[in-house]
Amino acid sequence: MRISLTVNGTAHQDDVEPRQLLVYYLRETLGLTGTNVGCDTSTCGACTVLVDGRSVKSCTMLAVQADGRDVATIEGMAKNGELHALQQAFHEHHGLQCGYCTPGMIMAADSLIREHPEGLDEQGVRMGLEGNLCRCTGYQNIVTAVLAAAEAMNGRAPAAAPAGGEA
């Protein structure tokens, strides 16, 4: 089947098998391997991308369902050589170790932050990211990074880090 869609601002037209999942279209047809696959049950969230601005696990969606849609992946987040606020915050707050869950985590967080212009607290971030699993960080620095990025994206000063931290 022929599909037309926009990925990271670039228009694409491709013939895809009806059974092909969006994640494999991105990875294998477009070569966008930043989006990772971590499970076969749509549990881990490593494959999270944005479709029309909302986070979607790209293993739960067929490529044909993305016809006519606007898809964003981790490769499109940095602009003109400048990291996105979330990428910068993950770097500064050590919100990643092995990095495998990171692209999905950042895409999910981007959607979460934009769904909450009023701001987020620690619990809001923890609940909002419960569909994305990380085995390395224990989440604490991810939460800190997302809170910092939320403030930056909403033009506010950073809020307090989560309870805890180093004494």
């Binding site: 971030v125 609940m127 990211l129 994305n132 604490q140 309870a163 805890g164 931290g165 004494a167």
Partner: peptide, 15 residues
């Protein structure tokens, strides 16, 4: 059950 962010607390560290 691998924990999600919502399943676990923040912790405090000392050296």
């Amino acid at each position: 059950e691998i924990p999600a962010a919502s399943d676990v607390p923040s912790i405090t560290i000392g050296r």
